[in-house]
Amino acid sequence: MKKQINFSTEGSLTSVGPLTISRVLPNRYAEKVGPFVFLDYVAPALKPHIDKRGMGAHPHRGIATLTYILQGEVEHFDSRGHRAKIHSGGAQWMKAGNGIVHDENFNYDREMDSRYIQGFQFWINLPAKNKAEEPAHVAVQAEEVPRKTLQSERGWIKVVVGQYEGLSSKIPDYAEQFLYHIHLEAGKYFSLSLAEGMEVAAFLTEGTVNLNGADAKAGELVVFDRHAGDIDISNTSGTAIDLLLFGGEEYKEPVVARGPFVLNSAKEIDLAYQDYHSGKYGSIEQGSYNY
């Protein structure tokens, strides 16, 4: 049995400095997919001129942020002293926990001579019991992301978050969740079976694809139902395509989101702002940034 498609939609566009951002999740149809409550897609930008320190320091609480960079490099700084740089194909995860201030600096990948910036930022909602934990950070370089070659030269799958057929990501799990990057050659296909109750969405970065009999194009988010079933992906483009498949078990606790905070009640949101404005999250040291 195939999973049914609930809806498809395109993101709303905005600009952050020289970068064009598509806000894909939340949208008018859905607030979340599994534990994923936010998704921004950074469309390909050719060697943009970034002349300031970072993209703007800001707080978070109650979530984990996940940046997955397809092309370029991302440098991370935060108020708990974590600092790391990832390159094309890498990911970095930050558990905001009970409060943190962070910033990221996107640039083209000078080390790997990439000419573009392209990538994603997700927010992953934490279970209530983990929202009050201390912040943490994990950087995963491209060669550390588990990858499996598909049979018959169809392409490959990378496990950015979660597990797949014996592969396991270094990024921590607090609930059943996954983020797969699937690369399919022209005219090839891939099929995945999901258990009952699993929420899942697909996002295509280029070309066209057929998902369980329905056509989708680049920039579309396609969200499926929660019933057990298969997702059949067929590359209908004349060239190779890249598609993200992400989701997990339904988040059943209350969700209250305001600004950069995602918690379980309005009272907790108010406290998050009070703690931030009173300086409890700390600040990023001046010397942390590159000039």
Results as ranks from 00 to 15, higher is better:
287 G>T: 10
187 G>L: 08
64 A>C: 08
26 P>A: 03
105 N>K: 13
69 I>H: 07
203 F>K: 05
17 G>E: 04
220 E>K: 04
245 L>C: 09
214 A>E: 11
155 G>N: 05
220 E>W: 03
11 G>R: 01
113 D>Q: 13
229 G>F: 13
185 E>V: 12
105 N>M: 15
186 A>L: 03
204 L>F: 04
289 Y>L: 06
181 H>M: 11
67 T>L: 05
13 L>H: 09
210 N>E: 11
70 L>W: 04
187 G>K: 10
180 Y>M: 07
108 Y>T: 12
51 D>V: 15
161 V>R: 04
211 L>M: 02
105 N>Q: 15
248 G>P: 07
131 K>H: 03
56 G>H: 06
5 I>G: 00
102 H>K: 07
60 H>C: 02
42 V>A: 10
146 P>Y: 07
20 T>K: 13
241 I>C: 02
50 I>E: 01
208 T>R: 09
71 Q>M: 08
196 E>A: 11
263 L>Y: 09
188 K>F: 03
230 D>A: 15
255 V>H: 06
10 E>L: 11
66 L>R: 00
273 Y>V: 10
122 F>R: 08
135 P>M: 05
5 I>V: 06
89 G>C: 09
247 G>E: 03
258 R>I: 14
89 G>S: 08
55 M>A: 15
130 N>H: 12
101 V>M: 00
230 D>Q: 10
222 V>P: 03
284 I>R: 02
136 A>L: 09
46 L>Q: 09
168 S>R: 13
188 K>T: 14
217 K>D: 01
168 S>A: 13
174 Y>M: 10
131 K>R: 10
189 Y>S: 13
263 L>N: 08
73 E>S: 15
169 S>N: 04
260 P>N: 06
81 G>N: 06
131 K>Q: 04
261 F>N: 04
77 F>I: 05
13 L>I: 15
33 V>W: 04
1 M>S: 11
285 E>G: 15
97 G>H: 06
232 D>G: 12
226 R>Q: 12
212 N>S: 08
241 I>A: 02
148 K>F: 02
222 V>E: 05
54 G>F: 05
64 A>Q: 02
163 Q>I: 09
190 F>V: 05
197 G>N: 08
270 D>L: 15
113 D>Y: 14
195 A>K: 14
43 A>D: 03
16 V>I: 15
192 L>E: 08
188 K>D: 00
164 Y>D: 09
166 G>I: 12
50 I>R: 10
73 E>Q: 15
233 I>F: 05
24 V>Y: 00
187 G>I: 10
173 D>I: 07
188 K>N: 03
187 G>P: 07
153 E>R: 11
209 V>G: 03
65 T>L: 00
153 E>G: 10
23 R>C: 04
148 K>Y: 02
65 T>E: 00
86 I>D: 02
53 R>I: 12
105 N>W: 13
163 Q>F: 10
18 P>G: 12
192 L>T: 10
266 A>M: 12
201 A>V: 13
39 L>Q: 03
167 L>E: 05
82 H>D: 14
162 G>I: 01
110 R>A: 14
224 F>S: 07
170 K>P: 14
96 A>E: 00
205 T>N: 01
236 T>P: 01
71 Q>T: 13
238 G>D: 12
158 K>C: 10
86 I>P: 08
261 F>G: 04
25 L>E: 01
204 L>D: 04
84 A>Y: 05
278 S>P: 06
27 N>F: 02
